[in-house]
Amino acid sequence: MSTVLERRTVRIPPALVTALVFLLLWQVFTMWGPLAGTSVPTATTTVVTFVRLLGDSATYSALGQTLLMAVVGFVIAVVLAIPVGILVGLSRFAFLSSKFTMDFFKVIPPIVIIPVTILVFGPTIRMGIFLVAFAIVFALAIQTAYGVRDADVVLLETMRCYRLGIVKQIRYARLPSAAPFIAVGIRISASAALVVAVVAGLIGGAPGLGRAILLSQAGGLSDVTFALVLLLGLLGIVVSRTVTWIQNRTIFWANR
């Protein structure tokens, strides 16, 4: 009898245990511990606010604006970066010429240029789109160029021996070699796009979830701040899982 019972006990996933312990500690700290009576919200208040936000249409319009900036900026960057990356990768001279410049812009975080974008665009959706595109385009272009240059030399020489023209070389050697590089670049860029769209709102005042956090913090609504940050964490996981899921189904060779 007891063995049957034992078999039926569901094994609790360790991650869930950790999450529950964390929530419990948070609750204890904010109700009776050193953080009691401060502006730090309790775990329960935060969860209640989180649920309330999920039922609030304003949350969805903010979410929509953030996603709009992320998606449009992402698409612009991809449309620019991939052709440029391919062209640059085809020529050794072009690659060496632009490598330093692209590396320079690649490592400059977009947050740095926000003051100038505020001047030029003001706190608008367009500013968010620009920042997202700026954040991604250089890294993606350089990644694409690396992929094109990584093509198999033996394969290329074989093709040349058979007098296959440059178009066929690109089609059958360069692009297949660049594809996995591009896939990795796109996966990283998608997550970065979301982050930058949030930062554009939080620092630059562009509309969306970022601005919602900024306003809640400035207005002293700390439970809303915490709940929105929680929402962003979940959103980040959803985005990275979705991109991985799409890639696994569309370009299966990307994971070779």
Partner: peptide, 28 residues
């Protein structure tokens, strides 16, 4: 064992954009 308990939790922490945690630290 520690990895099984903590890694998914740390992964979640990391999926929050770092800049968005600044308001949380301001509250704290």
């Amino acid at each position: 064992k520690a990895t099984a308990y903590l890694e998914p939790f740390i992964d979640f922490q990391r999926s929050i954009p770092a800049v968005a945690t600044v308001p949380v630290f301001i509250v704290l």
